[in-house]
């Protein structure tokens, strides 16, 4: 039996006391120190800063000497139309990203999985996930160069064919599409990696059996591949739903412009406007805290649904 060689070290670890285990593997504990220091300094210590949301924060006096103001900041943010609009935009953009963007990596992974020529598959994969490494700053600049109404290359090309210019960046509807497309272009290839990994876990015998039964490629995809990666799909979907309230700063900020601010101002860019540009740190912190609470609610409910559907939580 294969089990016998494994049981020996296992029993040894269990039998020794926790203190002894610690000293036996002290090198490993030291190795985990660095990530722990990282999380404590950059993720936990800054959490103390949320008290700023309840104080009239004066940068020169510091957090402790500033006056307490209770929930005044929260009362103020809920009176701001721009804040409500930022929440709405955050949800709308995230929802569109999810609804339209979520299936794209799955489809790409399925297609790549069907490619039999190895070099083509590999180079296609690399080309697809390369954009992930381009920063949004750069993509923002490219978008302006390519898509501007007068001077953008795409519109110059369209004009030379006799078509009207398309206001990719200055019209609200077009901007949302540009925003989504840029996101898919950058992230879709990267998203396929997880699915491709899941695909390799599917038992080859199932395909052979299907071949014997005379199943077509589409049939095999539908009855074997998709069910095979279903758990991955569900987990990723739930994780994405959990992140509905959070939105990156770079993408809406760098692609956006004052002409489309009605749809491009999201929570993160609004915090920037209020906190950094207007130096109203209290208000900005209150908004950030509020966003975190919404995010927590989403994440907990996603976890709850996951336990019902998948029999396993996110953590």
């Amino acid at each position: 039996m294969q089990l016998t060689p494994n049981t020996k070290p296992l029993t040894k670890t269990i039998s020794s006391s926790p203190v002894k285990t610690f000293f036996n593997n002290w090198q490993l504990y030291i190795l985990i120190l660095l990530p722990m220091i990282y999380f404590i300094t950059f993720k936990y210590v800054p959490m103390l800063g949320v008290v700023v949301a309840f104080k009239d924060y004066n940068v020169f006096k510091g957090i402790f000497d500033s006056q307490w103001i209770g929930f005044d900041a929260f009362r103020e943010i809920f009176r701001m139309d721009a804040f409500i609009k930022a929440i709405r935009n955050t949800f709308v953009l995230n929802l569109l990203d999810l609804v339209v963007g979520f299936p794209i990596p799955i489809i790409l992974a399925l297609l790549l999985n069907e490619v039999r020529v190895k070099w083509f598959k590999r180079s296609a994969q690399t080309l697809l996930y390369l954009p992930h490494f381009i920063s949004w700053v750069f993509i923002g600049g490219m978008a302006t160069q390519l898509l501007a109404t007068n001077s953008g290359s795409v519109n110059i090309f369209l004009n030379s064919l006799g078509f009207e210019s398309i206001p990719f960046l200055s019209d609200k509807t077009h901007w949302v599409m540009t925003y989504l497309a840029a996101g898919f272009w950058r992230e879709a290839g990267w998203g396929t990696i997880l699915y491709l990994a899941a695909l390799t876990g599917i038992n080859k015998e199932l395909y052979e059996a299907a071949d014997v039964d005379g199943a077509t490629r589409l049939r095999k995809m539908w009855h074997i591949t998709l069910p095979g990666i279903k758990p991955t799909i569900v987990i990723l979907l739930i994780l994405n739903v959990g992140h509905m309230a959070a939105i990156g700063f770079d993408r809406p900020f760098l692609l956006g412009n004052p002409g489309v601010r009605d749809v491009s101002e999201v929570i993160s860019t609004y915090v920037y406007t209020v906190g950094i540009q207007s130096a109203r740190y209290t208000i900005a912190t209150a908004i950030g805290l509020f966003q975190a609470i919404i995010g927590l609610i989403f994440l907990l409910s996603a976890d709850f649904i996951s336990r019902k559907v998948n029999d396993q939580g996110i953590w």
């Binding site: 302006t144 109404t149 007068n150 960046l169 200055s170 412009n257 004052p258 002409g259 489309v260």
Partner: peptide, 9 residues
């Protein structure tokens, strides 16, 4: 300029 909003700020 149709693109003037892109340059503001």
């Amino acid at each position: 300029d149709k693109d003037f909003p892109l340059g503001i700020g």
